[in-house]
Amino acid sequence: MTTASGNAVRDPMALRTAMVAELSEDTIRSEAVAAAFSVVPRHLFAPGESLDVVYDSNTPLVTKTGPDGTALSSVSAAHIQAVMLEQAEIEPGMRVLEIGSGGYNAALIAELVGPQGAVTSVDIDPEIVARARASLQTAGYDRVRVVQADAEYGVPEQAPYDRIIVTVGAWDIPPAWIAQLSERGRIVVPLRFAGLSRCVAFDLAGGRLVSHSYCLGGFVPMQGAGTYSETLVPINGEATLRMDGPDPGFDVPALRKAVHAPRIERWSGAAFDMPDELELFVVTSASHVPFLYASQQLVDQGVFSPAVTYGTAAVVEGGSFAYRTKRENEGLGGWESGVYAYGPQAEAVADRYVGLLRRWAADFRRRGTARIEYLPTSAGVPDGWYVPKRHGAVAVSWR
C-alpha cells in the first residue's frame, strides 16, 4: 500500500499476521492463543509508537518512565505474553485477574475467556489505569474491568478467579492471591527468588502452590506493598555481589583482595548449554549464592569474563569465590562448562562449583526438571532447599 506521494504505508493487519506467524514457529502452541493475537490490534495500545516497533514480537513498549529513565510500566513483549498465556491454559468462561495493567494483555485474555468469561485488570498507578481503560475502549473491549488498587490485596469483589496472571515482577506471593483462587485455580507469575526471576505457572494443591511449568522471564518490579529491593555488596567500585535477602556476612576485604590476585580455571568435561536451567540448579543447590556483576573495564583488563557484565551466579567461601564460564569444545557439541576461581581457597571453591556443573549435566540436563513450590507460612518449613519470603517460602527440588 502507498500514499499519493509514493510513501509506503505499513498495514497493521499484515504486520499482525506476520507477528503471529513468527510466534507460532516456537512459542504459540494453541489455536486459541494464535486466534487472540490475530484479532487484537496491538497498535491501539501504544499510540504514537511506530507500527514496526509495535509488531516486533520481542520488543516491550514502555508506557511510563521514572525521573531517572527507569521503566515503571510497559506493554510486555508479545513473545513473553504468548509464553505466559500458553502457561495459563485459559478456557472459555473462566474468570481471570490480571495484575499489572497495560490493556493489550487484558484484551488477549478477553478473547480467550469469551463473552461468558470475565477479566479484571488491576494496577496501582492511576495514570496507567486511565491509559488502559481508554485503550481498551478504543479497541472495543469495554467489558474488561480495570481497577486502581494495590495488587498486593488482589480484587476480592470479583473473586474467585480461575487464573491470576501477574505481569509485574513479584518477590512474593501475597495471601490474597491464593485466597482469591478458585479450586481449579492457577497463578502465572514472574517470581523473583535467589537473585533470579522465572515465570512460573503454579497450580493450587492442598493449600500450597506447585509448579506446572516455568521459563525464563523478567518484568518491571511490582510497586506498593509488594515492593522489594535486592542487597548490594560492593567488592570494589566495579564489582558487586547482588542477592535477595540480607547480606549473610561476606568477607568483603578478603574478596576485594581476591579479585586482583591470580585466578585459577577448572573445566568440567560437561557440555555447556541451557544456561538458564543450569543457573537455576546452581543457585538452588547451595546456600547464599549471590550474582556477581562487574564493569566492562574489569572484563577488558582480563580480570573477569564477559558473563559478569550481565550477572552470573557465584559460589563464595570465606575470602574466595568462583563463577561459571565456558570454552569451545567441539567434542561436547560446541561448548564446555567450567569455572574461574579466586582467593586463598580457590581450589576448594572451584572443585565445589565444578561438582555442581557435572551433577547437573549428568542428572538434570533437560528442560523442566525443577519442581518449584510456594508454601504459605501456615504450611510450615519445607524440606530441602528453600528461600524464606515475607508470606511464606519458595522451595525447589530436582527430579
Results as ranks from 00 to 15, higher is better:
G69Y: 09
G69I: 07
G69F: 07
T70P: 00
T70V: 10
T70W: 01
A71D: 05
L72Y: 00
L72H: 01
L72C: 00
S73C: 05
S73F: 00
S73N: 10
S74P: 01
V75D: 09
S76E: 08
S76A: 14
S76C: 09
A77R: 04
A77I: 06
A78D: 08
A78E: 08
H79S: 14
I80R: 07
I80H: 08
Q81P: 10
Q81C: 15
A82D: 10
A82K: 02
V83Y: 09
V83S: 14
V83H: 11
L85G: 10
L85W: 09
E86I: 08
E86Y: 09
E86D: 08
Q87R: 01
Q87Y: 14
A88S: 14
A88L: 08
A88D: 02
E89M: 10
E89R: 10
I90Y: 11
P92R: 04
P92H: 11
P92G: 13
G93Q: 09
G93H: 07
G93I: 07
M94S: 15
R95I: 10
R95N: 15
V96R: 00
L97F: 10
L97P: 02
I99T: 14
G100C: 05
S101Y: 00
S101W: 00
S101H: 00
S101N: 01
G102M: 14
G103H: 07
G103D: 09
G103K: 02
N105S: 13
N105V: 03
N105Q: 06
A106S: 14
A106Q: 03
A107I: 01
I109W: 05
A110V: 02
A110C: 08
A110M: 00
E111A: 14
E111N: 12
E111W: 06
L112Y: 08
L112E: 11
V113I: 06
V113H: 02
G114T: 12
P115C: 13
P115A: 15
P115Q: 11
P115M: 13
Q116M: 13
G117W: 00
G117Q: 05
G117L: 08
A118C: 12
V119I: 10
T120H: 05
T120C: 13
T120D: 04
S121H: 09
S121T: 13
V122R: 03
V122M: 05
D123L: 01
D123N: 06
I124S: 06
D125V: 09
D125A: 08
D125P: 04
P126G: 10
P126I: 06
E127N: 02
E127D: 11
I128E: 01
V129H: 05
V129M: 10
V129Y: 12
A130D: 12
R131K: 10
